[in-house]
Design a protein around this nucleic acid. Structure first.
Length: 571
RNA sequence: GCGCCUGUAGCUCAGCUGGAUAGAGCGCUAGCCUCCGGAGCUAGAGGUCACAAGUUCAAAUCUUGUCAGGCGCACCA
């Protein structure tokens, strides 16, 4: 039986006991907190409910605890012993039989072990990355990309049907700057002295795009061929080429090449988007206009200084917000509201939006805007993550695509691989201000926590290979009672927590919970392995232990799959 | 100035819906391979949980204040 269920049973029986003791209280099951004890000698699960009851009933907590325990009625097959300790804690000792039963369950359920049915027949949308195509994905985007993907996988593991969505906008100022930047670099190919806009995109990839455009125009094979050609060019020829410049659509070229690159990177790091949604669509289908009219009709917007303002002050904000500039061009908030309304219309049970900390303040505008249109918004969850700071030579540097102060996600993958890259981003909570030191990442990739997990997995696979199948005793006839060593019990207890961890991660949408759990599980396996031989002269014991490590393998595999990290049988 | 996030071992970080002795990795010290993979295991050193008040039987965890850092506070996205 899973730990979740056991806790539920304990909870109910405490409640029943409190009632039959007739204590003066209005406690319900939520007030009874069951904690895992750190010191397993005291017990496995404990509660301090007696302290809460002590005050109202004016009796010492220890006495209350004792009375509760006297009346408590729990199946001995689940809870072997219930006792009271010092100031007034009630402690529950799990019966190992329950742990044996759990091993059985793990093997039977296999890939399905740990899944909940919470999301079955439900649809979820996860929007993330959503970087405009102005440059390659950076390590900064990587955090959001992996976070979003693993959140999606957590939902899927719990039964949800998930759509991963990427929202972008290829109009607007950013893209205009991109266009100018590419154009300037293109001109520089012919005239090195020509100027480059100060606020343009300074990255080398812009030069590459410019070269690619020229290569395509001239039908060349590669950069080498192009460089030779450019070298031999005389001034008159150069002018000839520069005269044709107005015929080239730099923006489309740039967007296409950059987007290809982004998609390639995402695929490399095992992220597949189901939809790419362009902001433009909401102009085309008239929804932006419609929304404007609704705001107007509801008197939530007004004109001032040639612009249209949304009364965000009515939503608890200090000031109103411009939604249409005096140029007639909407600010991004309007399409954002249209986009979120569109998400809601698509009837998802859960809508998740992952954003960097810099967008935090704009979230209420959009959500309130959507709400003002009359939509239900309770199923929208916005997850904010903090930034990744790049550390170069012990100094912090803010990543900026424009200023080309960035390390690309591709570079990171090249350096440390996909598994470590993914793990790196989620081993820390999303609220932590992550410091990313390239030199350290390179150095530590040799001794990385990912290897620790994969090593445990590979070790198990190796033992299973050594095991002679002729010696195999079928599952039902396996004598689990032989698993009595300290390390075995500890490993089984850890295995038993998996479903609770899954529910936890579903509630918090924090992948880190799973990463930490897997570390702990791997540790308890390594300790077991170091102290006991799985394959030994006792056939029955060997079989029990084979089942134990098989269960461990299954849980590691399910956990690593959620994180999107590979689990090779050999390393 | 205002809002949000963060401050835990030398370093990078867990733990935060209050519970018993605050954990892990890296680094440091000392051990462990006749035997299923030593990318592992064991032991040790290392802490006023930024600081100060408060709430509580109980505070790293909750409240308030102070200090330090990150991010916002556009007719940019």
């Amino acid at each position: 039986m899973s730990i979740l269920l056991v806790k539920k049973i304990i909870n109910e029986s405490i409640l029943k006991s409190i009632k039959s003791c007739k204590y003066d209280t209005n406690i319900d099951e939520k007030d009874i907190k069951l904690n895992e004890t750190k010191n397993k000698e005291i017990g496995d699960i404990s509660t301090g409910i007696s302290f809460i009851l002590a005050k109202k009933n004016k009796k010492p907590p220890i006495e209350i605890a004792q009375n509760i325990v006297k009346k408590i009625d729990l199946d001995k097959n689940l809870i072997m012993k219930t006792n009271v300790s010092k100031p007034g804690f009630i402690n529950f000792h799990l019966n190992v039989k329950m742990l044996y039963d759990n091993l059985f369950q793990i093997i039977v359920k296999n890939k399905n072990y740990g899944r909940s049915s919470i999301g079955i027949n439900k649809k979820a949308l996860v929007e993330f990355v959503s970087a405009n195509p102005t440059g390659p994905l950076t390590v900064g985007h990587g955090r959001q990309a992996v976070l979003g993907d693993i959140v999606s996988r957590i939902l899927e593991f719990n039964g949800y049907l998930v759509e991963r969505e990427y929202y972008y906008n290829d109009a607007g100022r950013q893209m205009r700057v991109l266009e100018q930047s590419i154009k300037s670099r293109y001109i520089q190919l012919f005239d090195k002295e020509s100027s480059f806009p100060e606020h343009g995109y300074h990255g080398d990839y812009i030069v590459e795009i410019a070269k690619n455009i020229l290569i395509k125009e001239l039908g060349f094979k590669d950069f080498k061929e192009l460089d030779i050609f450019l070298n031999d060019l005389n001034n008159q020829d150069k002018k000839k080429y520069l005269n044709k410049i107005n015929k080239i659509n730099f923006r489309n070229f740039g967007e296409e090449l950059i987007f290809d690159n982004i998609k390639k990177t995402l695929k490399r790091i095992r992220i597949n988007f189901d939809n790419f949604v362009n902001e433009k669509q909401f102009y085309d289908d008239g929804s932006i206009e419609k929304i404007l009219k609704i705001f107007e009709r509801k008197k939530l917007s007004y004109k001032k200084d040639g612009a249209v303002w949304l009364k965000t002050s009515e939503f608890g904000k200090e000031v109103d917000t411009v939604i249409i500039k005096n140029t007639g061009e909407p600010t991004y908030r309007l399409p954002d509201i249209a986009y979120h309304s569109n998400k809601i219309k698509r009837e998802f049970d859960l809508i998740i939006n992952i954003l960097g900390a810099d967008h935090k303040d704009t979230v209420p505008d959009v959500i309130n805007g959507v709400k003002a249109l009359g939509y239900e918004i309770n199923h929208i969850k916005v997850l904010i993550h903090q930034f990744v700071s790049l550390i170069v030579k012990d100094e912090k540097m803010k990543m900026s695509t424009r200023k080309a102060n960035f390390v690309t996600l591709d570079d990171l993958i090249d350096m440390v691989g996909v598994d470590i890259s993914r793990y790196f981003f989620i081993m820390r909570g999303k609220q932590s201000h992550l410091n990313f030191d390239i030199d350290l990442a390179k150095k530590e990739s040799d001794e990385n926590p990912v290897f620790y997990l994969q090593y445990a997995y590979a070790r198990i696979c190796n033992i299973l290979k050594f095991f002679n199948e002729d010696e195999n005793i079928e599952l039902k006839k396996t004598n689990f009672n032989l698993l009595t060593e300290k390390e075995e019990i500890n490993l089984m207890k850890n295995l038993n927590c998996f479903d609770e961890i899954i529910i936890d991660s579903l509630n918090t949408l924090e992948p880190q919970t799973i990463a930490n759990y897997l570390q702990q599980l791997a540790t308890s396996f390594h300790k077991f392995y170091a102290n006991h031989r799985v394959i030994n002269s006792n056939k029955e014991l060997t079989n029990s232990r084979i089942k134990l490590i098989l269960s461990t393998k299954i849980v590691l595999e399910n956990g690593l799959d959620i994180l999107g990290i590979s689990h090779p049988e050999k390393m």
